[in-house]
Design a protein around this nucleic acid. Structure first.
Lengths: 197, 197, 197, 197
DNA sequence: TATGAATGAGGGTTCATTCAT
DNA sequence: CATGAATGAACCCTCATTCAT
């Protein structure tokens, strides 16, 4: 038990250090040497846990994203929001606010994902056998049905929403382009509500 | 004159070779050595024209994009399309079709641009003093006015359109996700027409 | 007793696994990690039985060679061959045939021994105090005497035979160079019979 | 011209240094780092001339062997030896004496070639289009014919001679086993003369 | 005996950049 | 303008060996 604790501790230290460095200076220009130096771990130890720099990056993206969405979902349930478009907006709003608070995370995600890939990451996030019923896409579908909303193609709609939000908010939060995020939100939510009609 | 032709010829050979290699094997794993070898040029010559690998990459993105949009605009004018939303859709449709024909270009652009950056690239494309009146944003504004279209914030609208198109079409063309591009187009154009009301 | 059986079992598992990997991918590119993984044994356990990778290799060469020659000798005795040169040829022929059947073993031996070293390995094979009378060299000497064969220097003759056989047969079996082994044998045996006159 | 001289100089310095280190401590335990350090050359320079450690080793073996045999042939011609077996013995004797004087070279060759491979290296040594008539095998054949010597299969005979000489002399020179080389020579030359009858 | 997490020296390789020609 | 040999920092990765459990 003590051993497995230590083991976990090293892995965590590597993950946290890598995240810090990746956000500060980008994945490409962070060397494994730097990661292990800052994590106070031997070089070989890195390879005990991760195949290479890109594996630790992917683990980080998945972990961080999962955490973010789980928090959003749980908050939404607590707030007892019933109306479907309101639920969607709530989740988006929550995630945006989190990213505003944590621009490093935003930068990290944005720098490591090309167009469209985040979409797949997020949708697949919960698609594990046991939790499938709770997967993001499954939840979306279920909610669409229950709220008697008619969409020509719900999958396409979800896809467009995720892409629109992620690609535009990145600019808005980090560069206030075309508007600061709080001013941009009304336009964005307007379009989303339109998409859900 | 012959000399400056030759000079230009070397630069062009470097650009074309770099483009070919970047699309085939990615920017990162293309070395300057490979570029100059394939361009039949000495290594030092590369540095006469470009600061480093990333400068030549940026020059390429801008050149290729500019060419693409200029062709789209010129085609649109020839076709004498008057109605404003039709004009927008025509340009988008033309660009998408070009990228479908040339997926290497699409892949190159997508792999070298993170969220939101393409947007800025495109908008700034023509924002040089002399051509400002013909800049993409300027053209958009002028057309909005002339067609008596009322948009709360035209800049935001243009921004959302570009981001939505670019981020979703990448997935659709390359991976048929969520739908093959031809099936996806109707949904996309529908949303765009809605945005322009 | 059960314990010592288990101990022996682990050692044997290590030996067999190492042999398999060494023949498949070479000694140098087989790591101790691979050996212990395939033997289902912990890494530390390896060091309980062998000093390093090269010790286990040497143990293997000796064990495998010893087994081969013991089998050849026992077969020869069963066949009741009396004439001395016939005995020598029989043993050589038997060993060659075994190596033809098992080219991995041949490759393993050939890749791990440089010129002349195999000779010493073989000659010393039985030179342990108690068995000296049965050592290869002792046997050879005894047989020379008993058959009233006159050799200027029996040791030199045995040495030349072993070297000639081992160095030429390797090429012949594995690469059919200068001839396939079955066509080469007559030339080889001819020379050996000449050496024994 | 000055450049190509300098270029050649670096390559030669690398070759000589590598040879020295390889003979002193073996190919495997000589690192490229050591080679370039001792040659006063940057690490990258090594890769300008050789793919890896094993390419420089092979270049060395071929160069050194070629030199050795060319010297032997030229000496033989000067000495005007006519009788064929005497010619063969002369060449072997010359090469043996050279290796006795230069045991490092012998060790280097012996440590880097497994059974039978040297044979091929030597035979192919001069088999280039223009010199084919002077190739070792061609020379052997021509001489066999001219001296009206009848051999069942000259290629096999040459093969056996080379292997017998190389594999036994290594032991004899370096370890005086089974006899010091000068005492061993008569036995060896006896067998060779027998082979050539 | 047996384990296997941790180590870190050491090796091979790449490549952007410089500079003398 | 053009060259390309030379550089050497930087990187990734492997693996034999140790040692606390």
């Amino acid at each position: 038990m003590k051993i497995s604790k230590q083991k976990n501790e090293k892995e965590n230290r590597l993950l946290e250090t890598a995240f810090k460095l990746f956000t500060e200076k980008g994945t490409k220009s962070t060397s494994i040497q730097e990661i292990v130096d800052n994590a106070n771990v031997a070089k070989g130890t890195f390879y005990l846990y991760f195949k290479d720099k890109y594996e630790i990056r992917d683990v980080l993206i998945t972990k961080k994203s999962k955490k973010l969405f789980l928090k959003a979902l749980s908050k939404m349930r607590k707030n007892n929001i019933q109306n479907f478009p309101d639920q969607i907006i709530f989740i988006i709003d929550y995630v945006i606010d989190e990213l505003v608070k944590n621009p490093l995370l935003l930068k990290f995600i944005s720098k490591n994902l090309s167009w469209g890939v985040y979409n797949q990451t997020i949708i697949k996030l919960y698609d594990r056998p046991k939790e499938e019923q709770d997967g993001l896409y499954a939840l979306f579908l279920k909610a669409v049905k229950e709220n008697h909303i008619e969409l020509k193609n719900p999958k396409v709609t979800l896809f467009m929403i995720i892409e629109l939000v992620s690609s535009t908010c990145f600019d808005s939060i980090l560069y206030q382009n075309p508007l600061p995020i709080e001013e941009y939100k009304p336009y964005l939510y307007d379009v989303i509500r339109n998409l859900l009609k």
